[in-house]
Structures are given as C-alpha cells and as structure tokens.
C-alpha cells in the first residue's frame, strides 16, 4: 500500500525561482490497483511519480510504502526498496544506451541484496514477457522507441516488484504500439501488481481502474 499525506515539493527552495510543484498532496493507493495520473503539462505528475519512486526528495509531509515511513529509511534501505519493491519506467526509457537489452535488464538483478543464481534466465524470461527475447544481445541504441519501452518494462519487472510506476510510457509511441504496451501493463496488473501510469492521453487513462487528476500541484476531486 502506498500512502502520501500532505506532501509538499518545492523546487529551488529559497532562490528567486522557487516553485512549489506539489501542494499538500494526500493519496492512498491500495495493492493491486491500476491508477492513471492525469493533468496538464507542468501540473506536477512526474514530480509525484518520482517521489513515489524514491528518486526525488520532498519538503514536507509523509510517505509510507507498506507502512514504512520512507523519510526514516537509510540510504541503503531506500536503494533496496527501489531495487526490489518498485519498478520504474521513465518517459525517455532511461536505458544505458550502449548496453545490450539483456545487460540493461540484468542491472536490477546485479544490484539485488539477495543474489540470485539464475540471473540470465530471469532476465531472459522478463525479455520474453515483453516479446524482446529475440533481441537480447542487441545494444539498445539500435532499437526503436517501442522496443526500448519494452526493454524498460522488462527491466522494471525483472525483480518482481509489487509496484510499477510508468511516466508516459506511451507518450512517444504510435497507437498500435501503445496498445501493445498497455496490454503488458494490464497483464502485470492481472498478476497482482500495483500500477501507476502518468499520462495525458484520456484513452489510456480510461483503461485504468482509477483516475487521479493533478491540477497546479494539487489533487483535483
């Protein structure tokens, strides 16, 4: 379960270009929910997602993952959470460009606290689940956008995290490829994963069980 209470995010605090991107956001997302986060450009959607992914800080408020107060966690424990509890899919894929598909997917397995013996097999399975097993050895900078997004999803799921966060995963893709990618998220959701997708595409949002709209850094009800 994810719980945010009164989260405030201020960029450039104390400087002349100070900007409050999130204003007292409170939110609860239950396990197994598939949620869409929508809102205008600049509303704070990505900011929210990055905080949820434990890769950005916030000024005020409390964030709990499975009843753990994130603020109190050590750097090491946080890394462990990013590694095993959360799978993150970024809008621009965020892959290591000159690694092959499998090398990218192996990263979370390499960083895992509990080392698994069959890493290559697990990585291949993850690639298979997104239909990319045929290109495992190919460097990702030779792939198309849709293929990159699949590899990014494979990397996000390879450690079997319970939460998957995706920032505009279909933003750069044509509608056919978008539908295929959404199919993957649906399948993951059916397998019990909590899924949060940031999108500005209402068609995508409507496929999710729940829609949260952000407006000017606040959740709109």
């Amino acid at each position: 379960m994810i719980k945010l209470s009164d989260i405030r995010k201020i960029y450039n605090k104390g400087k002349s270009n100070e900007f409050e991107a999130l204003k007292e956001v409170s939110l609860t997302i239950n396990d197994g929910e598939m949620t869409a986060v929508i809102g205008k450009s600049g509303a704070g959607k990505s900011t929210l997602l990055h905080i949820l992914a434990c890769i950005d800080s916030y000024e005020d408020g409390e964030y709990y993952i499975d009843d753990m107060l994130v603020k109190n966690l050590s750097e090491k424990k946080l890394a462990e959470i990013r590694n095993s509890k959360i799978g993150m899919v970024m809008q621009d894929y965020a892959l290591v460009d000159d690694f092959s598909c499998i090398e990218n997917v192996l990263l979370p397995l390499d960083f895992a606290k509990n080392k698994k013996a069959n890493k290559t097999e697990l990585a291949m399975n993850a690639l298979k689940s997104v239909g990319m097993d045929g290109m495992a050895k190919k460097p990702v900078n030779k792939l198309s956008g849709g293929q990159k997004q699949r590899v990014a999803i494979a990397r996000a799921v390879v450690n079997e995290p319970s939460i998957i966060l995706a920032d505009e995963p279909t933003g750069a893709l044509d509608s056919k490829t978008s539908a295929e990618i959404m199919g993957l998220f649906h399948k993951l959701n059916e397998n019990g994963k909590t899924i949060i997708i940031v999108t500005h595409d209402m068609e995508i949002a409507n496929q999710c069980g729940r829609i949260i709209e952000i407006f000017d850094g606040k959740i709109k009800f």
């Binding site: 992914a53 890769i55 750097e75 090491k76 946080l78 890394a79 462990e80 990013r82 590694n83 095993s84 993150m88 970024m90 965020a94 892959l95 290591v96 990263l107 979370p108 960083f111 895992a112 990397r155 450690n159």
Partner: peptide, 9 residues
C-alpha cells in the same frame, strides 16, 4: 540509472 535500479550513490 543505476540509482533508479537500486544502487546507492
């Protein structure tokens, strides 16, 4: 990127 995948700084 490594950080996102669970590496500490």
């Amino acid at each position: 990127l490594y950080y996102i995948c669970g590496l500490t700084w």
